[in-house]
Amino acid sequence: MSICVANISKSYKNVKALQDISFNVKVGELFGIIGPDGAGKTTLFRILTTLLFADNGRATVSGWDVVSDYKNIRKSVGYMPGRFSLYQDLTVEENLQFFATIFGTTIEENYDLIKDIYVQIEPFKDRRAGKLSGGMKQKLALCCALIHKPKVLFLDEPTTGVDPVSRKEFWEMLKRLQQKNITILVSTPYMDEAALCDRIALIQDGKILEIDTPEAIVKHYPKPIYNVSANNMYKLINSLNAYQYIHSVYPFGEFVHYTDKRAEFNAVELKLYLESKNLSNIRIEKTVATIEDTFMELAK
């Protein structure tokens, strides 16, 4: 195992940031911690990178204990905190050079590891980090976290505030890094990114809701889900909420996702009901659950 977390809890004043968290990450695995802001993702990352003590529980990274062997962990992991912590007044190259030096290595020594990523920002190597776009800052921060060839990479919300193109490129980079046998623990508030991980842990209010592969998590969704649409979204939601057999209703883009209490769902009956509420253009069709559906069902 590359990362072992056993019964970790952590509280600040009156907030329970983490409650009895346990999971394991295999060597070379891309493991996602998926949850909204304030779920406890950053606290978990700080405990694993030896920056915070947990109140209870134990954790190891690469076999080292996060409390007693913190020095060894600090030598062998790469950490990218949220907000791309770079020196804004240093150029791209100077930032990379600096992080290489403090980890006792050089850019040349591990260039093959960052090459794919670095070539994309190399044309701007004399530009100050503060003047880069979000996507380029993200790439530079990743290079800096990788420059000492870490065994485990901790990426705390690496795609927050970055445009979709850069996000996509970033995940492609992570996939390539994974093939070099680096274990990656990544956190994100975007449910759609969950599908790109090998395994994920859904987390909310400091508690893990479920851990599994994205495919399995979606399969575990207990009920059939129906896409419903009509001419007026607001009236549709209100009408469905007033329907006697409703289990849940959530807007999902141009549709709402509807689940029924009963085992045998009758689409015609629902259509008639909605028509009686003066709705038109009604469409009801079966659809597949997404990670977000599962998350909401578990968090309910």
Partner: peptide
């Protein structure tokens, strides 16, 4: 403030 202290701490420095 910048968060770079976190990285410095998680380094062999």
């Amino acid at each position: 403030e910048l968060g770079t202290m976190e990285i410095l701490l998680v380094s062999p420095l």
